[in-house]
């Protein structure tokens, strides 16, 4: 158990670092599409971290939440993409 536990803790640390980097891109932009792409990546990293947490604690009560996040994430990003497209430009916002 301890080997797997150690590895999973390392994975969580790596995911935390990725979340930080992706958030930097989200804040810096510069275009709305950059923010959309990085928001997608933020959702994906959070899903990975939730799963690593499930694996570490063997407590699967957050699994339905992961399913919900994956569904809502796709709906959100495709809706925003359509909204950005309808406005006619994706730059300078």
């Amino acid at each position: 158990m301890s080997t797997a536990g150690f590895l999973l803790t390392v994975a969580l640390a790596v995911l935390g670092l990725s979340l930080l980097l992706v958030t930097v891109r989200f804040v810096r932009g510069p275009s709305a599409l950059d923010r959309l792409v990085s928001l997608d990546a933020i959702v994906a990293v959070i899903m990975c971290a939730l799963m690593a947490h499930v694996a570490l604690t063997r407590d699967s009560s957050t699994v339905p939440a992961i399913v919900a996040v994956s569904l809502v994430g796709f709906l959100g990003s495709s809706t925003v993409a359509r909204f950005v497209g309808r406005r006619g430009d994706g730059e300078d916002r």
Binding site: L7, V10, A11, V14, V45, M51
Partner: peptide
């Protein structure tokens, strides 16, 4: 656990 670590590295 190794697969999870590899996935985290790809992320």
């Amino acid at each position: 656990a190794v697969l999870v670590v590899l996935g985290a590295l790809l992320a």
